Simulated scan of single mutants.
Amino acid sequence: MWRKSSYSGEGDGTNCVEMATTPTHTAVRDSKAPARATLTFPTTAFAPFLGALKGPERR
């Protein structure tokens, strides 16, 4: 089941991503284009991916 990020932005909340999780994987997609491709990560790789996006100054 897809859920929107709690950081959806102002207004109608369309500037965000959606996530779906299972015990083994996490999938991410653009909420403005849900029919397009998704990024799917093994569960153990998702936290390091987020850390890399934040960069060393925001970890």
Rank of each mutant, 00 (worst) to 15 (best):
D30K: 15
R29C: 05
P23L: 08
T14S: 15
F41E: 13
V17E: 09
P48C: 04
F46M: 11
P56N: 09
W2I: 03
R58V: 04
R36W: 06
A52C: 10
N15S: 01
E10Y: 09
A27M: 10
A45P: 13
R36N: 11
P34V: 00
S5C: 03
T43S: 14
R59F: 03
E18A: 11
T44H: 12
G51H: 07
T38V: 07
F41K: 02
G11A: 05
R59C: 08
M19R: 13
G11P: 13
G55Y: 02
M1V: 05
S5E: 00
K4F: 02
R58A: 09
D30R: 14
R59H: 10
L39F: 06
T26N: 05
G13R: 02
T44M: 05
T14R: 14
P56V: 10
P23R: 09
T24F: 07
T22H: 10
G9S: 01
A35P: 06
E10T: 13
P48Q: 03
L53W: 02
A27H: 00
T14A: 09
S8A: 12
L50Y: 06
G51I: 04
R58T: 06
A45E: 14
G13N: 00
A45K: 10
D12S: 10
P42M: 10
A52T: 08
T24R: 15
H25C: 14
E10A: 12
K4T: 12
R29S: 07
S6C: 03
Y7E: 13
D30T: 07
A47D: 07
E57Q: 13
E57M: 08
V28F: 05
F49Y: 11
E57H: 11
R36G: 09
R58Y: 08
K32D: 15
S31Y: 04
E57C: 10
T21A: 12
T22K: 06
R36L: 13
G11F: 01
R3W: 00
F46R: 00
E18P: 12
R36K: 14
E18K: 08
F46V: 12
K32C: 13
A47M: 05
S31E: 06
L39V: 02
P42N: 15
A33E: 12
L53S: 02
V28Y: 01
L39T: 08
G51Q: 09
E57I: 06
A35E: 09
R59A: 11
A27V: 04
P42R: 14
D12R: 11
V28R: 01
V28A: 04
T43I: 12
S31P: 13
T40N: 10
P48M: 02
D12G: 06
T24M: 09
K54C: 03
K54H: 11
V17L: 15
L53Q: 06
F46D: 08
N15R: 05
K54N: 03
R59P: 00
V17P: 07
C16Q: 01
E57L: 09
A45C: 14
P48K: 01
A47V: 14
T40G: 08
P42Q: 12
A20C: 14
R58G: 02
S5H: 04
L50E: 07
T43V: 09
L39N: 02
T14Q: 13
K4W: 01
E10P: 15
S6M: 01
T26P: 14
P56H: 12
R36I: 00
A35I: 05
F41C: 12
W2P: 14
E57S: 15
F41P: 06
S6R: 00
W2E: 00
T24W: 05
S8T: 01
P48A: 03
A20R: 06
R3T: 03
